[in-house]
């Protein structure tokens, strides 16, 4: 049995990282839209009040202002909920940030149904789909608190637009301090040879690990991959999974339309066509409930991943 891991907030890990990086790099500025207490950018605000801008409830203005700040050499990090960013400011992100290829970092908080009781309006389920089609942007969802801290360094080092997606709840710590983090390079959490479970965010990756354990009892060897970068998608890792395991399950807290799973499928289709099953929200809106209940309601937990793995394996071409 997998040991029950420690639970930590990724948004706190990011907020602490911004405070840490803000000390070294004076060009870092943070913008929020009246949600600093929730995104936890209030930590940065407390430490560096002159470099924090609460723009009020005005997401379009957050992005436009960030573009202007970036033009003067500042490195803006813009935080609010994923339903609003990119939801309410997609055009600003497209034209003012990405077309101009400005060095602006977006923080899309409260991604996924695990947001819970607030319900559909506050559960970001389409943000990856909305952003993935825009040129120049990098899309990340670091798995856990440890990985988030490393990702923050990588995001600062990367010159150009990046969006960091994160959940609301505490999530299992499943990566190790010594693991490498590189934008666009997926990490294998568990080796396997019959099927590859490609997950994003440790809440669902943990379900993948539980599923792999159950599958092992059935004599099925499942590889588990942490696909923290939706764009650019790690084609090499996908090719390896396709060649070596011949079946793929993608798992994410996002619509199955246009998300990380779609990126995996797009790559597979033109590289090594492989049966893929998609775990995620199946073209419907979220609901209120506890994260645990919602993982069952939306078919995101281990038992659904096991079924999907078996189905993907059954669809392998007979040799």
């Amino acid at each position: 049995m997998i040991a029950v891991p420690e639970m930590k907030l990724t948004r706190e890990a990011l907020a602490d990282s911004l405070v840490r990086l803000g000390k070294i790099n004076k060009n870092i500025v943070v913008l929020d839209a009246d949600l600093a207490k929730s995104t936890l950018t209030n930590k940065f605000a407390k430490e560096y009040p002159d470099r924090f801008f609460d723009m009020g409830i005005a997401e379009q203005d957050v992005i436009a202002t960030a573009a202007g700040l970036a033009l003067t050499g500042k490195i803006p990090f813009c935080a609010t909920y994923g339903v609003f960013l990119p939801g309410r400011c997609w055009d600003q992100i497209r034209v003012s940030i990405c077309y101009a290829n400005l060095n602006v970092k977006l923080i899309a908080a409260h991604g996924g149904v695990s947001v819970g009781a607030d319900g559909a309006t506050h559960q970001a389920l389409e943000d990856i789909a909305m952003l993935r089609a825009i040129p120049n942007i990098v899309l990340l969802m670091p798995a856990d608190a440890i990985e988030m801290a490393k990702a923050a360094d990588a995001v600062l080092k990367h010159v150009g637009p990046v969006c960091i997606r994160m959940g609301r709840e505490k999530v299992p710590v499943i990566t190790k301090p010594e693991d490498k983090f590189e934008i666009g390079i997926a990490n294998v959490l568990l080796e396997g040879s019959d099927v590859t479970l490609i997950g994003q965010g440790s809440l669902i990756l943990y379900e993948c690990l539980l599923a792999a354990e159950e599958l092992k009892k059935k004599g099925i060897s499942a590889r588990v991959v942490n696909m923290h970068t939706s764009k650019p998608i790690d084609g090499k890792c996908i090719d390896k999974a396709a060649l070596e395991t011949g079946a793929i399950v993608t798992a994410e807290e996002h619509q199955v339309i246009g998300g990380m799973g779609s990126a995996v499928a797009e790559h597979c289709a033109k590289s090594i066509p492989t049966p893929i099953e998609f775990i995620g929200v199946q073209d419907r809106f979220g609901e209120s409930g506890t994260p645990k209940e919602l993982f069952e309601e939306f078919g995101l937990s281990a038992k659904f991943i096991i079924r999907a793995a078996e189905k993907a394996i059954s669809r392998k071409r007979k040799k």
């Binding site: 379009q60 436009a64 202002t65 573009a67 202007g68 034209v95 003012s96």
Partner: peptide
Amino acid sequence: IEISAGSLGQGLGIANGTAIGLKMD
């Protein structure tokens, strides 16, 4: 050319950001 534009309603926000940045510097 200082900004990419064509979709209306974005220039003043960008101008604000640059005005803030210039003051900071």
